[in-house]
Design a protein around this nucleic acid. Structure first.
Lengths: 211, 211
DNA sequence: CTGAGACGGAACGGTTCCGTCTCGTCTAAA
DNA sequence: TTTAGACGAGACGGAACCGTTCCGTCTCAG
């Protein structure tokens, strides 16, 4: 038995994966880094970026503060690295064959994210924080916004290719319509939605696109 | 001359209005309260609610901390009171006579607010903060959301009365469409808009409503 | 003229967090 | 078996704020 992971008291999960060392930057490789990252996002959702203290993150992760400072030089660097890490692997592409299917899948993905505990609190928080923090705004725009925008434009272009949308469809407006109403309802107004809400929203969106 | 306002060094504005005392809660009546409120919003936009320190507000207002604690018992109470105060007077109603005119006026109002320095930073910040602060969420929902929602529903009902919209128009979706795309573009994605953006947006909205 | 009270300012003790540093422990490679 | 290094824990000095309390000044009603 070459690798017997010692029972870490603060990481009760049975992580049997081989611990791999990172040569470059530490990006969620070993179990300590994983525990720190998980604690970071929990803490971020609980108190927000401004109030987030690395001391609380360390305690929550069952780690020492030195373990954090050994990996990232500051809170901002840590945030940027971790956000970027989770942003890249959240980019699967779907092609359901129809515009309606693609739109519904797109909305379902947003809906799922904004209903989860951590993202629904973290996303508005980082959004507000990026208004004061250029570096944070930068990574959010490049790693998150551009990825999502790419998916949306791909969705529209496929529909144009299929002939489901006119070639001169107003892409700028369509992008805002795709995510705007749902984000408004789930993240801003925060009122409950009927079970068929996404279906009705999809229908209205298709009508608006075609107009 | 019954009232000669002494030249306060920290309030250089020529406020010639008669200083009136508030019997109930202090709501922007005398010059000191005004200075504190102004400093509060400036500070709130600069550093956000979480990082806002009453010490900084007092310094910015050219006031002592005691002047603040004499008016409000805590940072949260102060925030709630001031937000409520500015929320009530931001509710004029417009009836342009046509649905298109009403929608464009509604969008123009949001557009104006989200382009100003203070609201564009304060609104997303308080929104994120209200996810962790029930009392703050309460005042935002009742004093801001409900007011705005009332204006939007009034807009829709007038259009139904005029015959511009079918009586069974999906109000729930329509409300999300009214504010969602514009908020998404101005407050979330934060990309520049063409001068005719509001016009195009209005057209698309009307098309979606009618569908 | 006098007294009440709000004012700006400064200090207080207590708390929290920062980033560094030092322990003693445990692991894994040599 | 030895040993280098990462580990958890936490003490440390410094900084920032909290909410309170005091000071001396100023305004204004009586």
């Amino acid at each position: 038995m070459p690798n017997t992971p010692a029972p870490r008291p603060a990481t009760p999960g049975p992580s049997e994966q081989p611990v791999r060392r990172t040569p470059g930057g530490p990006v969620l490789q070993d179990s300590v880094t994983e525990a720190i990252a998980a604690a970071f996002f929990e803490e971020l959702a609980d108190v927000g970026y401004a109030r987030l203290s690395l001391e609380a993150v360390a305690k929550r992760a069952g780690a020492g503060k030195a373990a954090i400072y050994r990996r990232w030089p500051s809170k901002l660097d840590m945030t940027v690295a971790l956000i970027r890490a989770v942003a890249v692997d959240a980019s699967e592409i779907e092609d359901t064959g129809t515009l309606r299917g693609d739109v519904l899948a797109f909305l379902t993905e947003i809906d799922g994210a904004l209903r989860h505990r951590l993202p629904s609190k973290i996303i508005p928080d980082l959004l507000a924080e990026s208004g004061r923090n250029p570096e944070l705004a930068q990574v959010l725009m490049t790693a998150v916004r551009d990825t999502r925008r790419g998916k949306a434009t791909g969705l529209l272009e496929r529909a144009v290719d299929r002939g489901e949308l006119p070639a001169d469809v107003d892409r700028e407006l369509a992008l805002d319509f795709l995510a705007g109403p749902l984000y408004w309802r789930l993240a801003v107004v925060r009122t409950a939605t009927a079970p068929d809400y996404l279906d009705r929203l999809t229908d209205k969106l298709l009508a608006a696109f075609a107009a």
